[in-house]
Amino acid sequence: MTSAPLISVSELRRTYKVKTTGGWFSPTAELKAVDGVSFDIRPGETLGLVGESGCGKSTTAKLVLGLIPATSGKVVFEGKPVAADSKRAWREQRRRMQMVYQDPLGALDRRLPVGTQAMEPLDIFGEGTKVERRDRMLALFDAVGLPRTSVDRYPHELSGGQRQRVVLARALMLRPSLLVCDEPISALDVSIQAQVINLLKDLQEQLGVAYLFISHDLKVVRHVSHRVAVMYLGRIVESGRPEEIMRAPAHPYSQALISAVPSPRARGKERIVLEGDPPSPVDIPKGCAFHPRCPLATDRCRSEAPELHPFGEQRHVACHRAGVSITSARGAA
């Protein structure tokens, strides 16, 4: 797969000014929500973005969509820059990139029937005649597995899984080439999660849409993604094919994440439990941001921030000690 990327993100940064204490005159500090993130997504491909809460996944999603302006860095989508400030071009890009959020009930207006809401994107961009729009909506309801009778229902009358299907149908209404899914299934019951995941995969096969799939759940991400990027404190620390990262995670943070995934085979295996909480993004540690929690940290890690460098085939790691296993290092000690 060497086709031109659908979307290309380079050195994306977003910082917020925050007050260190509550007072009016307290000094402000810089919160680095996203700190130099780069990735490509090719047409029809899924990039999974994993990381714990607060690591900048959702901010990345908003930046990619141009919903908030970036502090620096560039997003190029289908050859054109995505900028949050240019109105017409930005609106035109909405046709091609859409978003699915975590909470399907919140994402729907409770006052309008779901069919009307799903058709809204078509209405707004004035696509086709009224009859054509309705046909398109019905076709997509079929595609996402919603009964046609649900068209006139209100959000509160549907189940969580059905609501997420409505949200998906609406997002796909304009035939986008990129769908950003921000924790699309974490608000759903486990049994429904699998259905929606499979639906996402089927839709990708049928429509050739690319996904930026954001989740904190590695086993879900592994299931849907062609490539995975692991984020920690606003940076990508490891990226590559999911099966390889799952089999042999090179970054110690990935190792810890993967050892936390419950699996029947891992029973009895030692789990890597990280100490402490992730540091505040206002006060990112010097050197490698992960070093205070890393069991493998050396003096170099404490002073010099590692760059993302190639590590094996189609894989990148930002770690001075990439490839050293925490468990075997512990065993040797």
Partner: peptide
């Protein structure tokens, strides 16, 4: 509310999002 954000992300112009939602 998320549905306002969603409407914006869908490309609904701001005045219309205000009026309709």
């Amino acid at each position: 509310q998320p549905y306002i954000r969603t409407a914006r992300a869908t490309g609904v112009p701001w005045p219309k999002a205000v009026r309709r939602h």
